[in-house]
């Protein structure tokens, strides 16, 4: 296209991202984190399914503070990715596209994800 180049402003520290943008980036970050956690999850599944000793090891491991912290982080990522994903699926069928809904649902996802993660951790242990 002829003419002057588009102005580009990509100073991440100065851009004020709208809340739906923050939620969207977090959805991506959570997805990448869950992806990187896959081998650890599969390893735990393999250990638990190996024999009774392995099963007991997983039970002991999952009670350790470091594992609980990691599990909480992953459950938060999962909850956020799950809730934001449902929001996207609803937007795909044209639900919640209009203001103020898209903004309110983005806030709701950001707020509900850590609560859901804590509830899951509490329920699972």
């Amino acid at each position: 296209m002829p003419g002057e180049p588009r102005p580009v402003f990509l100073n991440l520290l100065q851009i004020r991202l709208p809340v739906a943008g923050v939620m969207s980036i977090a959805h991506r970050a959570a997805g990448v984190l869950l992806f990187l956690a896959l081998p650890f999850a599969i390893a735990l599944l393999a250990l638990a399914l190996s024999d009774q000793e392995g099963f007991a090891q997983v039970q002991v491991l999952s009670q350790q503070p470091l594992m609980q912290g990691g599990l909480l982080l992953l459950l938060w990522a999962l909850a956020h990715h799950f809730l934001a994903g449902i929001r996207y699926l609803l937007i795909d069928i044209h639900l919640g596209v209009q203001a103020p809904w898209y903004r309110q649902t983005a806030w709701a996802v950001l707020a509900a994800a850590p609560v859901l993660a804590l509830l899951l951790l509490w329920g699972l242990s």
Binding site: A48, L49, S50, D51, Q52, G54, F55, A56, L78, F82, G85, I86, L120, G123, L124
Partner: peptide, 24 residues
């Protein structure tokens, strides 16, 4: 994935396998 996660997490919360045999 969403449906499977709901089922598995609900199962693990409501009736977690007690030992290796149950999980298997």
């Amino acid at each position: 994935l969403a449906g499977f996660f709901i089922y598995v997490l609900a199962y693990l919360i409501a009736a977690p396998p007690v030992d290796h045999q149950a999980l298997k």
